Simulated assay, not measured.
Amino acid sequence: MTNNEKQTINRSVIVGDTSEIYHHRTLNILRNEGLNPFVTYEIESINSGVVCGINQIIDLLDNVLPEADRELWALQEGSEVSDNEVVLRIKARFASFGLYETSLLGTLTSCSSWATAAHDCVIAASGIPVVSFASRSVHPSVAGQVDYSAYVGGCSAVSSLIGGKLTQTTPSGTMPHSLVLIMGETVRAALAFDRHMEKNVPRVVLIDTFKDEAEEAIQVGKAMKETLRGIRIETPIERGGITPNLVDEINKKLEAEQITGCDIYVSGDMNPDDIKKFVDNESAVAGFAIDNYIARGSKINFRADIKEIEGKPIARRGRIPGSKISSRLDRIF
Protein backbone atom coordinates (compact mmCIF):
# COMPACT_ATOMS: atom_id res chain seq x y z
CA MET A 1 0.00 0.00 0.00
CA THR A 2 1.38 3.40 -0.92
CA ASN A 3 -1.56 5.75 -0.32
CA ASN A 4 -1.11 5.94 3.43
CA GLU A 5 -0.01 8.83 5.62
CA LYS A 6 3.41 8.56 7.25
CA GLN A 7 2.79 7.58 10.86
CA THR A 8 4.43 9.30 13.80
CA ILE A 9 6.63 7.03 15.87
CA ASN A 10 5.62 7.13 19.53
CA ARG A 11 8.42 8.33 21.78
CA SER A 12 7.78 5.40 24.14
CA VAL A 13 8.88 3.09 21.32
CA ILE A 14 12.03 5.07 20.55
CA VAL A 15 13.21 5.15 24.16
CA GLY A 16 12.36 1.49 24.68
CA ASP A 17 9.48 1.78 27.15
CA THR A 18 7.52 -0.72 25.04
CA SER A 19 10.44 -3.18 24.95
CA GLU A 20 10.73 -6.18 27.22
CA ILE A 21 13.14 -5.77 30.11
CA TYR A 22 15.54 -8.48 28.98
CA HIS A 23 16.38 -6.52 25.84
CA HIS A 24 17.46 -3.59 28.02
CA ARG A 25 19.52 -5.93 30.18
CA THR A 26 21.11 -7.53 27.12
CA LEU A 27 22.29 -4.21 25.72
CA ASN A 28 23.61 -3.21 29.15
CA ILE A 29 25.63 -6.42 29.44
CA LEU A 30 27.03 -6.19 25.89
CA ARG A 31 27.96 -2.54 26.36
CA ASN A 32 29.87 -3.36 29.53
CA GLU A 33 31.58 -6.28 27.80
CA GLY A 34 32.56 -4.08 24.86
CA LEU A 35 30.60 -6.19 22.36
CA ASN A 36 28.62 -4.69 19.48
CA PRO A 37 28.95 -7.07 16.51
CA PHE A 38 27.68 -6.53 12.98
CA VAL A 39 24.82 -9.01 12.57
CA THR A 40 22.31 -10.26 10.05
CA TYR A 41 18.91 -10.42 11.68
CA GLU A 42 15.82 -11.89 10.04
CA ILE A 43 12.12 -11.89 10.84
CA GLU A 44 10.04 -14.59 9.20
CA SER A 45 6.37 -15.50 9.23
CA ILE A 46 5.38 -18.67 11.03
CA ASN A 47 2.00 -18.77 9.31
CA SER A 48 0.66 -17.66 5.94
CA GLY A 49 -1.34 -14.46 5.62
CA VAL A 50 -1.06 -10.79 4.66
CA VAL A 51 1.93 -8.95 6.05
CA CYS A 52 1.25 -5.49 7.46
CA GLY A 53 3.25 -3.10 9.62
CA ILE A 54 6.26 -3.08 7.30
CA ASN A 55 6.01 0.65 6.61
CA GLN A 56 5.95 1.49 10.32
CA ILE A 57 9.00 -0.67 10.91
CA ILE A 58 10.85 1.00 8.04
CA ASP A 59 10.13 4.41 9.60
CA LEU A 60 11.34 3.20 13.01
CA LEU A 61 14.55 1.64 11.71
CA ASP A 62 15.32 4.63 9.51
CA ASN A 63 15.30 6.67 12.71
CA VAL A 64 17.40 4.39 14.90
CA LEU A 65 19.90 2.72 12.56
CA PRO A 66 23.11 4.62 11.74
CA GLU A 67 23.30 6.49 8.46
CA ALA A 68 26.14 4.29 7.25
CA ASP A 69 26.98 0.59 7.51
CA ARG A 70 23.38 -0.56 7.46
CA GLU A 71 21.04 -2.55 5.22
CA LEU A 72 17.31 -3.12 5.40
CA TRP A 73 15.45 -5.55 3.17
CA ALA A 74 11.69 -6.08 3.35
CA LEU A 75 8.59 -7.30 1.58
CA GLN A 76 6.11 -4.75 0.30
CA GLU A 77 3.31 -3.75 2.68
CA GLY A 78 0.24 -5.91 2.01
CA SER A 79 2.14 -8.83 0.45
CA GLU A 80 0.70 -12.30 0.89
CA VAL A 81 3.24 -14.48 2.68
CA SER A 82 3.64 -18.21 3.06
CA ASP A 83 4.68 -20.25 6.10
CA ASN A 84 8.29 -19.63 7.20
CA GLU A 85 8.94 -16.82 4.71
CA VAL A 86 11.41 -14.05 5.50
CA VAL A 87 9.57 -10.73 5.59
CA LEU A 88 12.39 -8.48 6.83
CA ARG A 89 16.19 -8.57 7.07
CA ILE A 90 18.42 -6.15 8.96
CA LYS A 91 22.18 -5.90 8.60
CA ALA A 92 23.69 -3.55 11.16
CA ARG A 93 25.44 -3.29 14.52
CA PHE A 94 23.29 -5.09 17.05
CA ALA A 95 23.21 -2.26 19.59
CA SER A 96 21.52 0.04 17.07
CA PHE A 97 18.34 -2.03 16.89
CA GLY A 98 18.47 -4.85 19.45
CA LEU A 99 16.23 -2.95 21.85
CA TYR A 100 13.32 -2.98 19.40
CA GLU A 101 12.61 -6.68 18.87
CA THR A 102 9.45 -6.45 20.98
CA SER A 103 8.12 -3.57 18.89
CA LEU A 104 9.10 -5.17 15.58
CA LEU A 105 7.37 -8.46 16.35
CA GLY A 106 4.39 -6.81 18.03
CA THR A 107 3.78 -4.45 15.11
CA LEU A 108 3.97 -7.25 12.55
CA THR A 109 1.85 -9.69 14.53
CA SER A 110 -0.95 -7.26 15.38
CA CYS A 111 -1.17 -5.48 12.04
CA SER A 112 -0.76 -8.66 9.98
CA SER A 113 -3.42 -10.47 12.02
CA TRP A 114 -5.90 -7.65 11.39
CA ALA A 115 -4.95 -7.40 7.70
CA THR A 116 -5.25 -11.16 7.24
CA ALA A 117 -8.69 -11.23 8.88
CA ALA A 118 -9.83 -8.40 6.62
CA HIS A 119 -8.40 -10.23 3.61
CA ASP A 120 -10.35 -13.36 4.59
CA CYS A 121 -13.57 -11.30 4.58
CA VAL A 122 -12.74 -9.63 1.27
CA ILE A 123 -12.07 -12.98 -0.41
CA ALA A 124 -15.35 -14.39 0.95
CA ALA A 125 -17.24 -11.33 -0.34
CA SER A 126 -16.18 -12.09 -3.95
CA GLY A 127 -16.03 -8.49 -5.12
CA ILE A 128 -18.70 -7.02 -2.87
CA PRO A 129 -17.12 -4.15 -0.87
CA VAL A 130 -16.17 -4.79 2.76
CA VAL A 131 -15.92 -1.87 5.20
CA SER A 132 -13.97 -2.13 8.44
CA PHE A 133 -15.99 -1.31 11.55
CA ALA A 134 -13.25 -2.91 13.66
CA SER A 135 -12.30 0.28 15.51
CA ARG A 136 -15.33 -0.18 17.77
CA SER A 137 -13.92 -3.51 18.97
CA VAL A 138 -10.40 -2.47 20.01
CA HIS A 139 -8.77 -0.13 22.52
CA PRO A 140 -8.95 3.46 21.21
CA SER A 141 -5.15 3.72 21.24
CA VAL A 142 -5.00 1.24 18.33
CA ALA A 143 -8.21 2.24 16.50
CA GLY A 144 -6.24 3.83 13.69
CA GLN A 145 -3.92 0.83 13.41
CA VAL A 146 -6.72 -1.72 13.11
CA ASP A 147 -8.44 0.35 10.41
CA TYR A 148 -5.18 0.94 8.55
CA SER A 149 -4.42 -2.78 8.67
CA ALA A 150 -7.91 -3.69 7.48
CA TYR A 151 -7.45 -1.33 4.54
CA VAL A 152 -4.12 -2.96 3.70
CA GLY A 153 -5.96 -6.29 3.85
CA GLY A 154 -8.37 -5.15 1.16
CA CYS A 155 -11.25 -3.35 2.87
CA SER A 156 -12.69 -0.65 0.63
CA ALA A 157 -13.18 1.80 3.49
CA VAL A 158 -12.84 2.24 7.26
CA SER A 159 -15.12 3.81 9.83
CA SER A 160 -12.93 5.88 12.17
CA LEU A 161 -11.65 9.38 11.54
CA ILE A 162 -8.10 8.41 12.48
CA GLY A 163 -8.32 5.35 10.22
CA GLY A 164 -9.44 7.58 7.37
CA LYS A 165 -6.49 9.89 8.02
CA LEU A 166 -3.96 7.04 8.01
CA THR A 167 -5.38 5.53 4.82
CA GLN A 168 -6.12 8.89 3.19
CA THR A 169 -9.71 7.80 2.56
CA THR A 170 -13.11 9.16 3.56
CA PRO A 171 -14.47 7.36 6.64
CA SER A 172 -17.58 5.33 5.93
CA GLY A 173 -20.64 5.07 8.15
CA THR A 174 -24.39 5.57 8.29
CA MET A 175 -26.15 6.25 11.60
CA PRO A 176 -26.16 4.47 14.98
CA HIS A 177 -29.17 3.05 16.77
CA SER A 178 -28.75 5.79 19.39
CA LEU A 179 -29.78 8.46 16.86
CA VAL A 180 -32.93 6.55 15.92
CA LEU A 181 -33.81 5.81 19.54
CA ILE A 182 -33.43 9.47 20.58
CA MET A 183 -35.35 10.74 17.55
CA GLY A 184 -38.10 8.24 18.41
CA GLU A 185 -38.77 7.05 14.85
CA THR A 186 -36.66 5.74 11.99
CA VAL A 187 -38.25 7.97 9.32
CA ARG A 188 -37.80 11.04 11.52
CA ALA A 189 -34.14 10.17 12.08
CA ALA A 190 -33.63 9.57 8.36
CA LEU A 191 -35.13 12.93 7.39
CA ALA A 192 -33.04 14.72 10.03
CA PHE A 193 -29.94 12.98 8.69
CA ASP A 194 -30.85 14.18 5.19
CA ARG A 195 -31.40 17.76 6.36
CA HIS A 196 -28.20 18.17 8.31
CA MET A 197 -25.55 16.04 6.61
CA GLU A 198 -23.39 17.36 3.77
CA LYS A 199 -24.64 16.50 0.30
CA ASN A 200 -21.64 14.27 -0.39
CA VAL A 201 -22.56 11.94 2.51
CA PRO A 202 -24.50 8.96 1.12
CA ARG A 203 -28.04 8.73 2.48
CA VAL A 204 -27.89 5.22 3.92
CA VAL A 205 -30.40 4.59 6.71
CA LEU A 206 -30.33 2.04 9.54
CA ILE A 207 -33.72 0.29 9.43
CA ASP A 208 -33.94 -2.32 12.18
CA THR A 209 -34.48 -0.27 15.34
CA PHE A 210 -38.23 -0.19 16.04
CA LYS A 211 -40.16 -2.20 13.46
CA ASP A 212 -39.93 -5.04 10.97
CA GLU A 213 -36.96 -4.41 8.70
CA ALA A 214 -38.97 -4.54 5.48
CA GLU A 215 -41.65 -2.26 6.91
CA GLU A 216 -39.13 0.35 8.02
CA ALA A 217 -37.29 0.11 4.70
CA ILE A 218 -40.49 0.83 2.77
CA GLN A 219 -41.44 3.74 5.05
CA VAL A 220 -37.99 5.29 4.68
CA GLY A 221 -38.02 4.74 0.92
CA LYS A 222 -41.35 6.48 0.50
CA ALA A 223 -40.32 9.38 2.74
CA MET A 224 -36.92 10.02 1.19
CA LYS A 225 -37.72 9.06 -2.39
CA GLU A 226 -34.82 9.51 -4.80
CA THR A 227 -32.45 10.87 -2.13
CA LEU A 228 -32.24 7.45 -0.45
CA ARG A 229 -29.01 5.74 -1.41
CA GLY A 230 -29.45 2.60 0.66
CA ILE A 231 -30.36 0.90 3.90
CA ARG A 232 -28.23 -0.84 6.50
CA ILE A 233 -29.40 -3.90 8.44
CA GLU A 234 -27.90 -5.04 11.73
CA THR A 235 -30.61 -7.30 13.10
CA PRO A 236 -29.46 -8.55 16.54
CA ILE A 237 -28.98 -12.21 17.25
CA GLU A 238 -31.88 -11.96 19.72
CA ARG A 239 -34.12 -11.42 16.69
CA GLY A 240 -32.52 -14.13 14.59
CA GLY A 241 -29.66 -12.09 13.15
CA ILE A 242 -29.12 -11.10 9.55
CA THR A 243 -29.79 -13.84 7.01
CA PRO A 244 -29.80 -14.09 3.22
CA ASN A 245 -33.54 -14.80 3.35
CA LEU A 246 -34.15 -11.56 5.25
CA VAL A 247 -32.19 -9.58 2.66
CA ASP A 248 -34.12 -11.24 -0.16
CA GLU A 249 -37.44 -10.49 1.54
CA ILE A 250 -36.59 -6.80 1.98
CA ASN A 251 -35.33 -6.50 -1.58
CA LYS A 252 -38.50 -8.04 -3.05
CA LYS A 253 -40.80 -5.90 -0.95
CA LEU A 254 -38.93 -2.74 -1.95
CA GLU A 255 -39.27 -3.73 -5.61
CA ALA A 256 -42.99 -4.39 -5.12
CA GLU A 257 -43.36 -0.83 -3.81
CA GLN A 258 -41.35 0.43 -6.82
CA ILE A 259 -38.63 1.73 -4.56
CA THR A 260 -35.57 1.41 -6.79
CA GLY A 261 -31.90 2.35 -6.52
CA CYS A 262 -31.81 1.41 -2.83
CA ASP A 263 -28.71 -0.59 -1.95
CA ILE A 264 -28.76 -3.03 0.96
CA TYR A 265 -25.81 -3.15 3.36
CA VAL A 266 -25.41 -5.66 6.17
CA SER A 267 -23.26 -5.25 9.25
CA GLY A 268 -22.45 -6.91 12.54
CA ASP A 269 -20.55 -9.80 14.06
CA MET A 270 -20.06 -11.83 10.88
CA ASN A 271 -17.18 -14.02 9.74
CA PRO A 272 -16.10 -15.13 6.24
CA ASP A 273 -18.40 -18.16 6.38
CA ASP A 274 -21.37 -15.89 7.13
CA ILE A 275 -20.39 -13.57 4.29
CA LYS A 276 -20.09 -16.49 1.89
CA LYS A 277 -23.69 -17.53 2.61
CA PHE A 278 -24.94 -14.22 1.20
CA VAL A 279 -22.65 -14.56 -1.82
CA ASP A 280 -23.64 -18.17 -2.54
CA ASN A 281 -27.31 -17.22 -2.20
CA GLU A 282 -26.74 -14.33 -4.64
CA SER A 283 -28.46 -12.02 -2.17
CA ALA A 284 -28.78 -8.37 -3.14
CA VAL A 285 -26.06 -7.13 -0.78
CA ALA A 286 -24.15 -4.02 -1.84
CA GLY A 287 -21.64 -4.14 0.99
CA PHE A 288 -20.60 -5.71 4.28
CA ALA A 289 -19.47 -3.86 7.42
CA ILE A 290 -17.41 -6.14 9.68
CA ASP A 291 -16.25 -5.41 13.21
CA ASN A 292 -15.35 -8.20 15.66
CA TYR A 293 -13.91 -10.70 13.19
CA ILE A 294 -11.35 -8.19 11.91
CA ALA A 295 -10.63 -6.86 15.41
CA ARG A 296 -9.93 -10.35 16.75
CA GLY A 297 -7.49 -10.97 13.90
CA SER A 298 -6.50 -14.16 12.12
CA LYS A 299 -3.62 -16.24 13.42
CA ILE A 300 -0.31 -15.15 11.91
CA ASN A 301 2.83 -15.08 14.03
CA PHE A 302 6.45 -14.11 13.43
CA ARG A 303 9.85 -15.04 14.83
CA ALA A 304 13.13 -13.15 14.85
CA ASP A 305 16.67 -14.57 14.83
CA ILE A 306 20.27 -13.53 14.42
CA LYS A 307 21.49 -15.52 11.40
CA GLU A 308 25.04 -14.17 11.01
CA ILE A 309 27.58 -12.52 13.32
CA GLU A 310 30.45 -10.67 11.63
CA GLY A 311 29.63 -12.54 8.42
CA LYS A 312 29.72 -16.01 9.97
CA PRO A 313 26.51 -18.11 9.82
CA ILE A 314 25.02 -18.90 13.22
CA ALA A 315 21.66 -19.87 14.68
CA ARG A 316 20.02 -21.20 17.79
CA ARG A 317 19.30 -24.94 17.90
CA GLY A 318 16.46 -25.91 15.61
CA ARG A 319 17.10 -23.06 13.15
CA ILE A 320 19.29 -23.08 10.05
CA PRO A 321 22.38 -20.80 10.25
CA GLY A 322 22.91 -18.13 7.60
CA SER A 323 20.60 -15.84 5.65
CA LYS A 324 17.59 -17.49 4.11
CA ILE A 325 17.24 -17.08 0.34
CA SER A 326 14.32 -14.80 -0.49
CA SER A 327 13.97 -13.26 -3.93
CA ARG A 328 10.93 -11.20 -2.93
CA LEU A 329 12.74 -8.91 -0.49
CA ASP A 330 13.38 -5.35 -1.70
CA ARG A 331 16.38 -3.30 -0.59
CA ILE A 332 14.95 -0.36 1.37
CA PHE A 333 18.27 1.28 2.30
Results as ranks from 00 to 15, higher is better:
L206C: 05
S159A: 15
N10C: 15
S19Y: 02
F97A: 01
D280H: 04
D147I: 00
P176A: 13
R136A: 13
S172Y: 12
G184K: 11
I290L: 05
S149P: 06
G241F: 01
F38P: 03
T8F: 11
E216R: 07
I290G: 00
V15K: 05
R70Q: 15
R239A: 14
V220H: 01
D263G: 15
V142I: 15
L166N: 10
G16F: 04
S113R: 05
E308C: 10
A189S: 10
A217R: 01
G153T: 00
E42K: 04
V146F: 04
V81P: 01
M1T: 14
T227S: 06
A150Q: 07
I314E: 12
I21L: 11
L61C: 03
R70P: 03
L166H: 13
P129M: 10
I320M: 12
A295V: 05
D59R: 07
S82P: 03
I325C: 11
I264P: 05
D69G: 14
I325T: 09
A68S: 15
I290K: 02
M197D: 03
V131C: 15
P140W: 04
V39S: 10
K307E: 11
L35P: 01
L61K: 01
P272M: 02
S137C: 11
L88Y: 03
E216G: 05
T186R: 01
G153V: 00
G164Q: 01
V220L: 02
C52W: 00
V130D: 00
W114Y: 10
D273Q: 14
S172W: 14
K252Q: 13
A315N: 09
K91T: 14
N55W: 15
E44Q: 13
T40V: 13
M270E: 03
S126R: 15
Q145L: 09
R296Y: 12
I9A: 03
R136K: 09
D273V: 09
G153P: 00
D17F: 13
S298M: 01
E5D: 11
F302H: 08
G98W: 02
I21C: 07
S126Y: 05
L27T: 09
I306K: 05
T167M: 01
A223F: 07
V180W: 00
Q56L: 08
E238F: 12
V158K: 01
K276W: 03
D120N: 13
H119Q: 08
V138C: 10
D194T: 11
D17K: 06
S267K: 02
E80S: 10
L88A: 08
A117E: 05
L179T: 07
